[in-house]
Simulated assay, not measured.
Amino acid sequence: MTKLLLSLHVLAALVAVGPVTVAASMFPATLRRTLGDGDGTEARTTLRTLHRICRVYAGIGIAVPLFGFATAGSLGVMGDAWVIVSIVLTVAAAGVLVLLILPAQEDALGEEPGATPLSSTPLAPGRLAMFTGIFNLLWATVTVLMIIRPGSTTGA
Rank of each mutant, 00 (worst) to 15 (best):
I134V: 15
P117M: 10
A63M: 12
R48Y: 09
T121Q: 14
I84L: 14
T132P: 03
S120D: 12
I87E: 01
A29V: 06
M26F: 08
T143N: 04
L128M: 09
L99G: 12
G114H: 07
A23R: 01
I84S: 07
T2S: 09
V22F: 13
T153K: 13
L5R: 03
V17G: 01
P117A: 13
L89F: 12
T132D: 09
V96Y: 01
G79I: 00
E106A: 15
T141W: 02
P117G: 11
V83Q: 00
V56M: 05
I87M: 15
I84M: 08
L100T: 00
I101P: 00
R33G: 05
M1I: 09
V83S: 00
P150T: 08
D107G: 05
V56T: 07
W139I: 05
T45L: 12
G151D: 11
I62L: 11
I101Q: 00
M26S: 08
A94D: 08
L123R: 12
W139C: 00
G114V: 01
G36L: 07
M26V: 07
G36M: 07
A12Q: 06
V98P: 00
A29R: 11
L99R: 10
V17K: 00
P19G: 03
L89N: 08
R149C: 07
G79W: 05
M78S: 11
S74F: 04
S7D: 09
T71V: 03
G110F: 06
A23D: 04
S25K: 07
F131T: 01
K3A: 14
P125G: 02
S25I: 02
H9P: 04
T21N: 08
W82L: 05
A63D: 05
E42R: 13
V10G: 05
L99Q: 06
T30C: 08
T141H: 05
L35I: 14
F69Y: 10
G73D: 05
A12C: 13
P122T: 09
A29S: 15
A23P: 01
R127V: 13
L109C: 04
V88Y: 08
L31D: 00
L75W: 03
T153S: 14
I62F: 05
L5F: 13
L128R: 01
T49N: 10
A124W: 10
T30M: 06
